[in-house]
């Protein structure tokens, strides 16, 4: 589905990505973990075309995305749930959802969306800034879903959420993957990662240093944690 090959790049004065290759398959949750500052968020921004400079190959079902501007990548099928949620604070929940809908969603009509994320139904007329952190996160996910993405990129969606809400999030991500969406999840929360991921990739110093199935990760977890994740 989404395929990255030898991605390098970063910001004006800092090279962050040193050659990242990965595949996010349809119908699976691919999790990307790693310490702070290894380039996970930079990679997500790069996939969306939000980095000042980047080289390498990005393709979606074989079609190259590399030269496209951000809005064209979204239209090609990338849904983006950024770090810090970034909902529109002065728009209502319904308006937040409408921004990404050039036409009504085929896969996520209102009834189905609110069945998946029931908390949003009662908040539909509220401004984004009036929502709780968990509600804002659900809105950020819903806002990406109604663009009917084939790939959903999520950057630390569990940040700042109560454990109950994280469970809810895990359920939603699992359901999306089961319906055929390729989910690429950047997370610090290992419990969430292990609960939903089919594959777990570890990133360090701008590269992927480990790529295996979730059961294999669990089998070698102590060593991997010690080597790549602990502070």
């Amino acid at each position: 589905m989404l395929s990255l090959s030898e991605i390098t790049g970063g910001y004006a004065k800092a090279q962050v990505l040193e050659g990242v290759s990965l595949d996010a398959a349809a119908g699976a949750v691919t999790a990307l973990i790693g310490r702070n500052g290894v380039g996970k968020t930079t990679l997500m921004r790069g996939v969306m075309g939000l980095l000042p400079r980047m080289q390498g190959r990005i393709s979606l079902d074989g079609a190259a995305l590399g030269g496209l501007p951000t809005h064209a990548r979204a239209r090609a099928g990338l849904g983006y749930v950024p770090e810090g949620r970034q909902i529109f604070p002065e728009l209502t929940v319904m308006e937040n959802l409408a921004v990404g809908q050039r036409q009504p969603s085929r896969l996520w009509p209102e009834a189905r969306l609110f069945a998946l994320l029931p908390n949003l139904r009662d908040r539909r007329a509220n401004a984004g800034r009036a929502l709780s952190g968990g509600e804002q996160q659900m809105l950020a996910i819903a806002r990406a879903l109604v663009t009917d993405p084939r790939v959903l990129l999520l950057d630390e969606p569990s940040q700042g959420l109560a454990p109950m809400v994280v469970q809810e999030l895990a359920r939603v991500l699992r359901q999306l993957a089961d319906e055929g969406v390729a989910v690429l999840l950047v997370e610090q929360n290992l419990r969430l990662t292990e609960a939903v991921a089919d594959r777990i990739l570890i990133m360090a110093r701008g590269r992927i240093v480990h790529d295996d199935t979730a059961p294999a990760f669990r089998a070698a977890e102590d060593e991997l944690r010690h080597r790549w994740l602990s502070m």
């Binding site: 969306m48 939000l50 501007p69 951000t70 809005h71 979204a74 239209r75 983006y80 950024p82 970034q86 909902i87 529109f88 921004v99 990404g100 050039r102 806002r143 990406a144 663009t147």
Partner: peptide
Amino acid sequence: TMTAALGNDV
């Protein structure tokens, strides 16, 4: 940025 990331030509 988010307006563009949701598929709109800003």
